[in-house]
Write a protein that binds this DNA or RNA. Structure first.
Length: 602
DNA sequence: CTGTAGACTTAGGATCCTCTGT
DNA sequence: ACAGAGGATCCTAAGTCTACAG
């Protein structure tokens, strides 16, 4: 109890809150000392559980299952080799998975086709298997058209009908989308079981097109507290297992059939459980800030170590730090797309240039990282690093490991020794956040308009996204919408200009009536200013858009940037938080929005 | 040490929804 | 009122990292 109060008091001192919430906090402390109740308004004012325990009470409705398969109407026909053919329900369902995707690039890929066909055949009955031997002879076009039309029809539904459907989903969300965890009603992140379909791996995935099986209650493990009401399985079904494990955060799990990995139902990022973890992540990154200089000098020394393993570790660490590379766990060959991170880099992924474009010791990186996103970068490095890399490359084949004495667990063990809780990914968090803070300092202009400040923020955000290599496919409509925007800028420019002429003409014309001159002048001047401002805004928008073409800002905003930096910046420069964070983001970062004042330093 | 299961975070694309300009 | 652009949200794949068995 006492430590609980102490913690609150510390929080109070730490955050230097305004008097009003301070009083509230003090009241909370007094209340708690008196009643021994966890009376906090917010989870971030609550006491933590003992080590390893994630909750004391957990109750929920269980997952929401995908609707059962609805057979095709009789007038939708599948043809094999030109002949109409009525498929058994199981085979038909899988055929619809493919038919729906006909206009997707996936279905043009050989691996996708091959995997699909193999798995489809497992769902056919004997007779179907005897007939259907070649995918090229299958005609799914009527199936495709059926689902396309159905989709169009849904879109064209009258408003009231759409409203009705919306209410249905809301009802499901209300019933299945929330749970009770330690007295809080918490939103669940993914309460719907993934429906069956064809596996869509990213990049060159060897398993793309394989059949993702339907999950039944008999496949699902339920997790809740023993004193909670255990969720009812759907009528006529049983759960695989019900367990009461409060050392984990998931509510339900099942094993997926493509990779054999476990999938979980977990809470939404706005929840206490996720929020606390997120907060803790940024606190770890801030601790790294205190020791990062020391760590950097250490790995610089290690570049000259007599031990090869140590040298490799030091160079890898340098990449992880400087370039924000991911750790790079080893992957099972042939099970996933061929992608790498730092420790799994191969000889073929880097090129050394003693001199390039007037710079010395340049390393060219070219590899596919997470989600098969290409990392391409030319980086001038220290001479020692360059020499080491040359050494690591000696007598190796292109597909040999660059760091042959290294893996992620060696790197992370070492990091753990340097700082409690330090792992490779903390460097990404740290470097992302510190970059945002520094960029905001450098780019923000006190007297700028709010719009210009937002542009500065986005630029700072962009610097981080660039560092972390967060990319997106340029929107299909990018060129066109860019042209539209440019056109708008042009016309607005002309308008503003002509309106300026208008202004002087008006002045001349109304020269006779003295009093009206100044009034008209004022009016026109105001109008002109408004137009100028509008034009500025458009130009800013255009710049922002162009610079954002291939860069995704959302990922870093959501996962790497300490929200307290953003909140402090917003407060300091009078930018409404809604201009930077949308509703989802504000929910996720509620703790930071509540506790941060403008003096916060990462 | 090595391999694997498990739990959790991070990620881009798909889809839905809302706002804007016509 | 309507289309369509772009942002918000959903979806689930693909990583990281730890624990544990052998």
């Amino acid at each position: 109890m006492i430590s609980n109060g102490c913690r609150l008091l510390c929080a109070l001192l730490r955050t230097r809150r305004s008097p009003q919430p301070a009083r509230r906090l003090l009241t909370a402390i007094a209340l708690r000392v008196k009643s021994c109740q966890p009376a906090a308004r917010h989870w971030w004012e609550e006491k933590n559980h003992e080590d390893g325990v994630k909750w004391k009470f957990l109750e929920h409705r269980g997952p929401f299952f995908a609707p059962p398969y609805e057979p095709l109407p009789d007038d939708v026909t599948f043809y094999y080799d030109g002949q109409p053919m009525k498929l058994s329900p199981a085979a038909e369902e899988v055929a619809t998975f493919y038919g729906k995707m006909l206009d997707h690039e996936y279905t043009t890929k050989e691996i996708f086709q091959k995997n699909f066909f193999t798995d489809w055949r497992t769902q056919m009955n004997k007779d179907e298997r005897k007939i259907i031997k070649h995918l090229e002879k299958c005609d799914f076009s009527e199936i495709h058209k059926y689902f396309f039309d159905k989709n169009e029809a849904r879109k064209a539904l009258p408003k009231e009908e759409k409203q009705k459907l919306k209410e249905e989903t809301n009802k499901i969300q209300e019933e299945y989308g929330f749970c009770t965890l330690d007295g809080h009603r918490e939103k669940i992140g993914n309460f719907k079981i993934e429906p069956p379909g064809l596996f869509r791996g990213r990049g060159d995935h060897p398993k793309m097109g394989m059949l993702k099986l339907r999950i039944r209650p008999e496949d699902v493990i339920i997790n809740c507290s023993s004193d909670a009401k255990v969720p009812e399985p759907p009528p006529g079904h049983k759960w695989k297992e019900v367990r009461f494990d409060n050392t984990v955060t998931w509510l339900a799990s099942w094993t997926e059939n493509i990779q054999g990995s476990i999938k979980y139902i977990m809470l939404n990022p706005s929840s206490k459980l996720k929020g606390e973890k997120d907060w803790q992540k940024y606190e770890t990154a801030r601790r790294l800030k205190n020791v990062v200089d020391q760590i950097r000098s250490q790995y610089r020394l290690d570049w000259k170590s007599r031990e090869m393993k140590k040298r490799q570790r030091a160079v890898a660490l340098y990449f992880i730090d400087k370039l924000a590379l991911r750790a790079g766990n080893e992957k099972e060959e042939g099970e996933t797309a061929d992608t790498v991170g730092c420790c799994s880099l191969r000889v073929e992924h880097i090129k050394l240039f003693p001199e390039l474009d007037g710079q010395q010791y340049v390393v060219e990186f070219d590899f596919l990282g997470k989600d098969s996103i290409r990392y391409y970068n030319k980086v001038p490095v220290e001479k020692e690093v360059f020499k080491n890399l040359k050494l690591f490359l000696e007598n190796k084949n292109p597909d040999d490991d660059l760091f042959d004495r290294l893996n992620t667990s060696i790197v992370n063990k070492h990091l753990q020794d340097l700082m409690d809780g330090l792992t490779a990914k903390v460097f990404r968090t740290y470097n992302a956040s510190i970059t945002l803070q520094n960029q905001l300092k450098a780019l923000t202009n006190e007297d700028d308009t709010v719009a210009a400040k937002i542009l500065s923020y986005n630029r700072a955000n962009r610097a981080v996204a660039l560092l972390c290599n967060h990319q997106r496919a340029p929107p299909k409509t990018f060129e066109k919408s860019m042209q539209n925007l440019q056109a708008k800028v042009q016309s607005s420019q002309i308008y503003a200009c002509s309106s300026g002429c208008e202004q002087s003409r008006t002045v001349v014309r109304s020269f006779t009536t003295d009093s009206s001159i100044s009034r008209e002048m004022e009016k026109k001047k105001k109008q002109c200013e408004r137009l100028e401002e509008q034009l500025m805004k458009l130009k800013l928008q255009a710049t922002d858009k162009e610079e954002n073409k291939q860069i995704a800002l959302g990922t870093s905003k959501l996962n790497y940037l300490d929200p307290r930096i953003t909140v402090a910046w917003c407060k300091k420069y009078g930018v409404p938080i809604e201009k930077i964070y949308n509703k989802t983001q504000r929910d996720k970062f509620a703790w930071a929005i509540d506790m941060t004042n403008e003096d916060f330093e990462f």
